[in-house]
Design a protein around this nucleic acid. Structure first.
Lengths: 252, 252
DNA sequence: CTCATGAATGACTCCAAGTCACGGAAGCAT
DNA sequence: ATGCTTCCGTGACTTGGAGTCATTCATGAG
């Protein structure tokens, strides 16, 4: 599926399909839905375009008509999955009012529950991040930086305005650190495949997880938090009642 | 290539080949070498097992005899590539003596040069991290945590013993943070595909890169550094003369 | 009703991973 | 050397999925 260093030509197939006609939008959407399930359940390679078409009762050719290639289809699936996630600032107003790190805590504590409700998009984002192809990965990276689907930039600005984040560093750097560590931390939290031993060594105790989350946030706070705040050793992040964890919004 | 969530059976092919006979070791090694070049140059998917065999003048079947599958072959390639990298503590004695963060600086400043000399293993590790398959990724993750090829654990212990790292957090957490951020930072530094805009926005000025590296280390120091040190705002990390950058050791 | 254009089809091609029955080589005992 | 066995290499073969395309079908405009 196209090389990386070598063969300089071969225009990526994601751009091949012509501008979508109005009517076909609905069908496109159905295909993406079905494909999302297939990819999530089987992984990128094991998902078969033919199967996806079959579950929709349409011809395989149609799928290619719409998306040009399996990669192209997956890319659309990926975008939809990632766009379905909540942005940081979608946290409830009272949590936002409590502060930057409370918002992070809010989402981290909840991810697991949110995931259980709706694991498919999460699986897709995992595939996009680790399980497809470097060529596609470049496209995905471009998408993530231009679209900022988690609203990290706005969120960091929010933290800066509140004086909770250090101002002696440009926004991009803080955004990157946040994205990198949050992503990996959540991956470790959620999937055995990617845990370097933070969660899966001892026996899955939920309070242990909670402690890890606090530990992680303490680290983050010292790293990107404003000096005044972190010097004061950071006031405690509000605890969240267990009953409160039966989520309502989407996912982070 | 086996599913993820579903089909519970199907033993992974990486373990199928019988215990290696002494004589065949040499051939295995040759195959791995050739495969490494092919994978690095073409990416995982575009690399053809047939081509690899052809460049060696052997039959495709032999490759499968030795490695069971393309995945299995790649896994061996990956392990060799990653093992060829330097460990953190392979930095020269005087750099080590200067301290934990000086060691990090030493490697970061040098990676680009080291890469230019020997880009193939780096490309392989990139493929392993982002461009294959989640199933393989699990295997890779297991390998990374059991083998610790960069010697991160020993390095963190080193930093702890010198009192440069905070002691109020367990080693695993610090190791994870270090691994995660260093990996992503280096990826951004080295490959356009994975840069979220830290390096490739303005025009590639090398002193800008150096500033980024210092910025990144400052962040890291506040995050995982001992309070006493980071409070004192961290003494300056020794600069390294430009002439000194024409590397001699392997890679990070 | 007719024509034009876009959408759907499925049989078909292409191609790469993976298999296997065979033949030859290398060890080993007698 | 001779036979026996075990391992190794081989390449023609099978399998199966991605992607193509000539054709048919649907739709809507005039």
């Amino acid at each position: 599926m196209s090389g990386i260093a070598s063969n300089p030509v071969a225009p990526p197939r994601y751009m091949r399909h012509n501008a979508p006609r109005p009517r076909s939008e609905a069908k496109r959407s159905h295909i993406i839905d079905a494909a999302m399930r297939h990819f999530a359940e089987n992984g990128y390679h094991a998902a078969r375009v033919g199967d996806i078409a079959a579950t929709l009762g349409i011809a395989k050719g149609s799928v290619f008509q719409h998306f040009g290639s399996k990669d192209g289809l997956f890319f659309e699936v990926y975008k939809r999955a990632v766009r379905s996630f909540s942005k940081y600032l979608d946290a409830p107003a009272d949590v936002r009012a409590a502060g930057f790190f409370d918002v992070l805590y809010y989402w981290l504590v909840r991810t697991e529950h949110l995931l259980r409700e709706d694991w498919i998009p999460y699986r897709i984002s995992l595939l996009g991040n680790y399980g497809t192809d470097l060529v596609l990965k470049r496209e995905i990276n471009r998408f993530l930086t231009t679209e900022d689907p988690y609203g990290t930039v706005a969120f960091v600005r929010f933290g800066l305005e509140r004086g909770e984040l250090r101002k002696d560093m440009d926004v991009e750097m803080i955004v990157s650190i946040l994205d990198w560590t949050m992503e990996r931390f959540q991956d470790a939290l959620l999937t055995a495949e990617l845990d370097p031993g933070l969660f899966r060594k001892q026996g899955e105790m939920p309070e242990k997880k909670e402690a890890r989350i606090r530990q992680f946030l303490a680290l983050l706070q010292r790293a990107v938090g404003a000096a005044s705040v972190s010097q004061v050793r950071g006031r405690e992040i509000r605890k969240i009642a267990a009953a409160d964890l039966i989520a309502k919004p989407k996912t982070v």
